[in-house]
Nucleic acid binder design. Structure first.
Lengths: 197, 197
DNA sequence: TTCATCAGTAAGCGTACGCTTACATTATGA
DNA sequence: TCATAATGTAAGCGTACGCTTACTGATGAA
């Protein structure tokens, strides 16, 4: 009998490397040759793990989402009574925003949205992302029960937008780290509470 | 003597077509052959107008910015005493957001930010964009002089982020037109006023 | 040991792309 | 008119890319 199939293990091993390559160079400029070289394998090995380059990219989208959720979930488990989960999330993102290159992969994908598979993968990611944020905001508002807070769903989209513009500003060097943190903190608070600081 | 040089006129004539192509297909996937075909000329004619494909793209970035500013400026000149300029701007964007594909060009560019020329062009565009919005917000706040409004510079970045996420949601079909308008209206108001509706 | 299957290497195929070259035609001011 | 530079057409050059093929060596249950 033959040896046992290790395709899944290999996929898990190489996916972070693949994702980082796409994050650094975008979708089109990342060549399959470069992916193979970074992974330390020949190209056809990648093609045994995924049917084509597009599938590698879609897998990378899933990976960065899973990575974010894993980090956030760990963060939310650390009980801290002073701050709500939403506040801790915002504070964390203000500090570590875009550390992996999450948004670079998203931007790369957003240039390929006429491909239905890529569009679907991105849409799915955004839905989950927003839902996660919305739940934290709703929980925060319930705990603080202010009189007039923004609709949690809308506020969640706005927080996603806030993170996006913060990523862009980091990418383009538009704001200093300090200003970016202030942006996340003050506007984040406004979106959570429904009133300025 | 030779005929007179019409390079500038030709550039102005073709630039909207070039920009639309980049908006629809992204930077990498737009081939110079396709650009030429859409423009109804041969490729080398484009290369007489711009040194290379990258220059065509950077020109397209400038074009979509100029176009937005032209539209907004016209909008702001129409005097309307009920609403401030900032409110009209938000209302307009809620309705016509991304009509030309402004954000698609930006996303395409954001996948190419390791090229210093493209990065500089995008950074310049964002700076001007944010400054424009900030001025409108500051004017709005001065007119309404509420007690606690968000810092205009931060609010302007947040509005940029709000527009970005609204564009993304439109691109990916995440929100209905109605929901998207509500997002722009309610969160926009929150960012301007510093308090929920 | 056998042998079917998996893992890895090396090379290359077909195509598409950015950009250039070579050349013909046209318009214009001296 | 006519020299001259602008404008237009057609073809192709070199390279890079996505993906495949052909092959060799390793693995491990029967």
């Amino acid at each position: 009998m033959p040896r046992r199939n290790q395709t899944n293990e290999k996929r898990r091993e190489l996916l972070p490397i693949v994702a980082r390559a796409f994050a650094e160079r975008g979708y089109r400029r990342t060549t399959t040759a470069e992916l193979a070289e970074r992974c330390g394998v020949q190209e056809n090995i990648l093609y045994r793990l995924w049917p084509d380059k597009k599938a590698m990219f879609i897998a990378a989208i899933g990976y960065v989402y899973d990575l974010s959720v894993a980090i956030w979930s760990r963060l939310l488990k650390e009980e801290e009574d002073e701050k709500t989960a939403a506040e801790r999330l915002l504070a964390y993102e203000a500090e570590h925003l875009g550390e992996f290159g999450h948004s670079r992969i998203v931007f790369a994908g957003l240039s390929e949205t006429d491909d239905p598979d890529i569009q679907a993968a991105l849409a799915d990611m955004y839905q989950r992302y927003q839902r996660f944020v919305r739940e934290q905001i709703a929980a925060h508002q319930a705990r603080r029960h202010k009189t007039t807070t923004p609709d949690a769903a809308l506020a969640a989209w706005a927080v996603v937008g806030l993170g996006t513009v913060a990523s862009i500003s980091r990418e383009l060097g538009l704001l200093s780290d300090r200003q970016r943190r202030r942006l996340m903190a003050e506007i984040g608070r406004l979106l959570l509470e429904g009133s300025a600081a």
